[in-house]
């Protein structure tokens, strides 16, 4: 049984409860009063990129639309601009809920596989935690090559002017590919993160059991 089916089974008919227990800040979803201020404030909504703005996602959660929510690309479009947070009359930590739903969808394998931001997000974290610091070049290369080598060259070429400009301005170092910035105590960082994951996993499991 996959993680997804197990969870779906456990929370049968109660997607709101599932979100409350499994998603960071998820217990806030029920407090939304559907005023729509967040949707009206969300930049990605203006660019008509979104299937569902936050208000709608929260309503869908309450209406039990599990698959539609967790497979949506919507929360991946959040730019972390925090516009919604400061405006929500109910003080919902919307940005964090958006990230939380995304993380959950990713965790149980329902998130759209090739959603670019999801990919980038994962990449970023791996990039950052591997050495303790972000390697911007590897990060970009990784993103452009996500669809394989051929399209990677194409994506990379599109950004070529940008990259050359940055190199000239000494703000992107081609040598980063071979080493680059890193922390000294990488071992400590890895150990620390391993522990953190362990703790987090056991807490979530406890919630699921209880």
């Amino acid at each position: 049984m996959s993680a997804n089916t197990a969870l779906a089974e456990k929370y049968r008919n109660n997607f709101l409860k599932e979100i409350e227990e499994q998603v960071e800040m998820g217990d806030w979803v029920k407090m939304c009063m559907q005023c729509g201020v967040c949707s009206g404030s969300c930049p990605t909504n203006f660019q008509s990129a979104w299937e569902h703005p936050p208000q709608e996602l929260f309503m869908m959660i309450r209406a039990g639309k599990r698959d539609e929510v967790l497979t949506s690309t919507s929360m991946w479009n959040c730019t972390s601009c925090y516009n919604c947070i400061v405006r929500c009359p109910r003080k919902l930590p919307i940005t964090h809920i958006m990230h939380g739903i995304a993380e959950y969808a990713h965790r149980i394998g329902l998130a759209p596989k090739m959603q670019a931001t999801r990919f980038f997000s994962g990449l970023f974290w791996k990039n950052a935690t591997k050495t303790g610091r972000v390697n911007e070049l590897k990060l970009s290369m990784g993103l452009y090559f996500k669809n394989g080598f051929g399209s990677g060259v194409k994506e990379g070429m599109k950004m070529k002017d940008v990259a050359i400009g940055l190199v000239l301005a000494k703000r992107l170092n081609p040598l980063e590919l071979f080493g680059g910035h890193k922390c000294k105590d990488q071992k400590g960082i890895q150990a620390m993160l391993k522990k953190a994951y362990e703790i987090e996993r056991s807490r979530k499991a406890a919630k699921m059991a209880g």
């Binding site: 709101l16 029920k30 407090m31 009063m33 559907q34 309503m59 309450r62 209406a63 109910r90």
Partner: peptide, 24 residues
């Protein structure tokens, strides 16, 4: 439209906390 003026807002919020589902 949910019309709960004044302190009704707190009451409304309390119901949400208790898990009453509000559907527009």
């Amino acid at each position: 439209d949910l019309r709960t003026p004044g302190n009704g807002e707190d009451f409304y919020r309390s119901a949400q906390e208790k898990g009453v589902i509000f559907t527009k």
